[in-house]
């Protein structure tokens, strides 16, 4: 079976988890990969648990859900508590330290995604795009070019620029983290 790469984006309704999954999936298509994106959410449009899953592969994807996540993004404490156990060994856990106080794994990357978003664009809602930039920056899951095109295509009218800014900050922070680790 060809290599599957499984990403789970989890947070609360209204944080943009599902759209983030769609953007990541579209970027994967631009890179010529196969992809599925699924979601689960409660009845409430805002505030309930919301989760988006993206499976990327060079081969055919049968089972479209995450079996064991390669990457888990947590934008709420509840999401972290609930999904951290499904992470693959040596999988990557990214937690937004603005919303997540406790992570179970001292290897988790805890970074203030929401604060970065606010500082860059003035809008909390762009935290999901910052997160995507950061996640892709760390993993190289898809190309940066594809991410930029996908963000541009999906950004609500008139918000392409700030979303690209948010994405760029994510990439920059990832680069900073990687170089600091390399430096160590």
């Amino acid at each position: 079976m060809s290599e599957r790469y499984e990403v789970r984006l989890a947070g609360k309704g209204g944080q943009g988890m599902i759209l983030a999954g769609i953007i990541l999936a579209e970027a994967a298509i631009l890179d010529g990969k196969n992809v599925t994106q699924t979601q689960s959410y409660g009845p409430e449009a805002r505030g309930g648990a919301s989760r988006s899953e993206v499976v990327i592969s060079d081969g055919e994807i049968d089972y479209p859900k995450v079996t064991q996540a390669d990457v888990l993004l947590c934008m709420s404490q509840e999401a972290c508590d609930r999904y951290c156990h499904d992470l693959k060994e040596h999988g990557l856990l990214i937690a937004d330290s603005v919303h997540v106080e406790r992570t179970p794994d001292n290897l988790a990357v805890e970074v203030p995604l929401t604060r970065w978003a606010e500082e860059t664009t003035g809008r909390q809602i762009t935290a999901s795009v910052v997160a995507l930039g950061f996640l892709v920056g760390l993993t190289g899951l898809v190309s940066r070019q594809a991410m930029e095109a996908a963000v541009k295509a999906r950004a609500p009218k008139g918000t392409a620029e700030i979303n690209l800014k948010a994405l760029a900050v994510g990439f920059e922070q990832a680069e900073r983290l990687l170089s600091s680790r390399r430096g160590r």
């Binding site: 599925t36 699924t38 979601q39």
Partner: peptide, 9 residues
Amino acid sequence: EMIGHMREK
């Protein structure tokens, strides 16, 4: 629901 809501290439 899985097929209805799933997005796929």
